[in-house]
Write a protein that binds this DNA or RNA. Structure first.
Length: 267
DNA sequence: CACGCCTCCTGTGCGC
DNA sequence: TGCGCACAGGAGGCGT
């Protein structure tokens, strides 16, 4: 569910609610087969949340005492206040009397408390690429990075290494805009520069619409994002390409459903 | 080291 | 109706 625009929309609602709040108690429902689901969350007890930031799809909340709470929504994760249903996997009791609930049906999400800046237990965060909506995301460097990989362009984007926060939806969207075939292993400088801009465009547009909701993704206040009806590639199999009218096609690439225009996006 | 396959988990929708 | 299978927005482990 949650890619950068969804996580950013959650962050914008969480930050004003959590900043300055003390966590009085933390509780979670451990699943023996998922030892990485909630790591050291107990260390958050008694700590005060400084703010809620974000890197790629990770929420990062500095706590007092030199700690950070890392939060990842996985595929179905969501945060709500004073919420209760069978899919609430963890709760944080706050000093204002409210309870922050982490709801996550598929349990791919994660909460972890780490020493600030030590991401050795979160490999993807440790090797995360540049933030796409900051100057850190340099077009020429992106083009060079892309030129060095032998992997197909879409799985490479999903690795989070060339750029942070792009997932299955926005990868399909950006590649459609840039007219690049998802399986392409050779993306030259010119097309890479277009892709760079396309990534920034699809992500910032989606943030303005507060993300894409299909089923599980909800903001903290329970509302859905409004971006789903604006998608032109992801989930549009069989529909005419908005550019050339050719029916959009779908296949599996790197284990992920991938939709593209067979005419605009040549290998 | 880089790449690509498989797994973690639960629910849903589809074809038979 | 019931069953079995494919698939779902992500990341990480492991083999090659």
């Amino acid at each position: 569910m949650p890619e950068l625009p969804e996580v950013e929309s959650v962050r914008r609602q969480l930050d004003p609610e959590l900043s300055g709040r003390r966590i009085e108690e933390a509780g979670w429902d451990p699943l023996p087969s998922m030892p990485r689901e909630f790591v050291n969350v107990g260390l958050a007890e008694g700590r005060t949340i400084v703010s809620v930031g974000r890197r790629g799809k990770f929420l990062i909340a500095p706590l007092d005492g030199g700690l950070e709470m890392i939060m990842h929504l996985g595929m179905t994760g969501a945060f709500h206040f004073d919420h209760d249903d069978p899919y609430v996997r963890a709760r944080l009791w706050l000093d204002d009397g409210r309870v922050l609930a982490f709801r996550d049906p598929r349990r791919f999400g994660r909460l972890a408390v780490v020493t600030a800046g030590d991401y050795s237990s979160v490999p993807t965060l440790a090797t995360l690429g540049p933030e796409p909506l900051t100057d850190e995301f340099d077009a020429e460097r992106f083009a060079r990075t892309i030129a060095t990989t032998k992997a197909p362009i879409k799985p490479f984007l999903l690795s989070q290494k060339p750029v942070a926060g792009v997932g299955n939806i926005y990868a399909d969207e950006a590649l459609w805009i840039a007219r690049i075939h998802p399986s392409s292993r050779r993306v030259g400088r010119k097309r890479a520069l277009v892709l760079h801009e396309a990534i920034r465009t699809v992500l910032s547009d989606a943030i303005e619409r507060e993300g894409t909701t299909f089923r599980d993704y909800r903001m903290v206040n329970g509302e859905s994002g409004r971006n789903a009806s604006f998608l032109v590639a992801y989930g549009q199999v069989g529909k005419p390409c908005p550019r050339c009218g050719t029916p959009m096609r779908k296949y599996v690439l790197g284990g992920r459903g991938t939709t593209f225009c067979p005419r605009c996006q040549r290998p």
